Amino acid sequence: MGEGVETRDGDAGAEAVQQSEQQSDTVVAIPAGTVVLAATPIGNVGDASARLRALLEHADIVAAEDTRRLYDLANRLGVHVNGRVVAYHDHNERDKADGLLDNVETGATVLVVSDAGMPTINDPGLAIVRRAIERGLPVTCAPGPSAVLDALALSGLPTDRFCYEGFLPRKHSERVQHLRMLQGERRTIVFYETLHRIDDSMDDLLDAFGPNRRMALCRELTKDYEQIRRGTIAEIRDGVREDPPRGEMVLVVAGASDEEAASVAPNTLSVEDMAVLAIDRALEDGLRIKEAITQVVGEHPLPDGSLANRKQVYQAVLAIKR
C-alpha cells in the first residue's frame, strides 16, 4: 500500500530480534528455480513471518520496490540479505522481468518484495508473474499482512463478498465516473486513499452513494496509532473535515441494497433509446436536436460510468427520422 515499516521503540526492536533468533531454528524450505512473492509488514514489524526472514537471508536474488526500505526492514528483523539485490519498481518491472526469470530458469530463487504488503496488490510484481506463467516457470507466495483484508475484517461490514478497487482516480471527473459505475455494486467495496485527496473523495462518495450508506475509514493499520472510524458516509465525511486523518487510508464501503441497485438499473439506455428520448425532448422543449442529445447523454451514463458517444446517438436519430 506504499506504507513504510513503522519504527518501534527499543523494547519492541529487541523483541523482534529475539523472535528472529527463536524462529531461526525453524526449517524453512527455500524453493530453487522459483519466483517467490513475499508479503512484508504494513506497519508492525512483528508481523513478519519466519518464511519472510528465511527468504530474505537465503534467496539468490531479492527484487525490491525500494532497496533502502528493504535493508531497513532486514535490519529491524535482525537478518542479513545475502543475495543480489535488484531495484524492481513500477517504472522498470516489465523490462527487468525476463532478466530475473533467466536466473530462475538456471535454478535461482528470486524473491519479490514491495515496500509493504503483498506484491502485485497495488505494487509491482504482476509483470514477472505473467511472464513466469508464459515461460512455464514456477511462482509461489509467502503470504502475510494485507491492508485490504485487515480493513475489511475491522470494518464491521459484510465480508462474504467484496470487491477491491485500489486507489480512487486522482482527477475529479474520473473519480466521479468510477464511482457512478459502482452505484449498483452489491458487494462491500474497498478503496485506498491518501491524505491529500481524502476530503474531495469523501465528497464524491457522498454524491455517488448518498449520506446513509455505512462505511469505515481505516488508517495506520497495525501501527501504534491505528484508528478505525465507522459510521455513515455523511458522518465520516464530517469527521474528516473536523479531524483530518493522516497517512494512507483504506476505505470500506457497504454494498448497495436491493433498492439502491434497482434504482440505478433504469438509467442505462441503449443508443437507440437515447435517440428516441432526444427526439421527444427536442420537440417538447423546442431544442435543437444536438442540444437535446447532449442533455439526454449526460443524464444517462452507461454501466461503466462513462457517457454514450453523442455522434452515435445522432446517427441513430437520423436513422429513425429516415
Rank of each mutant, 00 (worst) to 15 (best):
V271T: 15
L55H: 10
Q19Y: 07
Q295F: 05
L77T: 02
L137F: 10
I293W: 00
A63Q: 01
R170T: 14
E242C: 07
S24F: 10
P145K: 01
S263H: 11
E6S: 12
R180W: 09
V253E: 00
P169E: 13
Y192N: 06
L56E: 02
V113A: 01
Q312H: 10
T140C: 15
K171E: 13
R131G: 06
I293F: 04
P158W: 07
V317D: 00
F162G: 10
S146E: 09
A59V: 04
G2V: 09
A142K: 04
A265S: 12
M202H: 05
V148Y: 03
D258F: 08
L157E: 01
I189A: 07
D203P: 05
E134H: 14
D258R: 13
V36Q: 02
I236Q: 00
G136D: 11
N267K: 14
A308N: 00
L251N: 01
A292Y: 01
G231S: 07
H178C: 07
T26D: 13
V139W: 02
G166Y: 09
R241E: 04
D60Y: 03
T106V: 14
P244T: 03
R310C: 03
I42S: 02
R51E: 11
P158G: 11
M118L: 12
I320D: 10
H300M: 07
R69T: 05
R187Q: 13
R186I: 00
N75S: 15
R180S: 10
E291R: 14
N267I: 08
G255L: 05
A308M: 00
A282K: 02
D280E: 15
F162P: 04
I121H: 06
P145L: 03
D280T: 13
N75K: 14
V271G: 08
A308S: 07
L307F: 14
R229S: 10
E174C: 07
D238M: 09
H178M: 11
R322K: 15
A48E: 02
K321W: 05
T268A: 09
A132L: 09
R94Y: 08
I279Y: 03
E259T: 11
Y71D: 07
R187W: 06
R219H: 04
T188A: 10
G255T: 05
C163D: 06
F167M: 11
D72P: 01
R229N: 07
L52Y: 04
R180H: 14
E57F: 06
H178I: 01
T159Y: 05
G286C: 11
L195Q: 11
Q19N: 12
A292V: 04
K223T: 12
H300A: 07
D203I: 09
D207Q: 15
C141T: 15
D285M: 12
L251G: 00
E248K: 01
L56V: 10
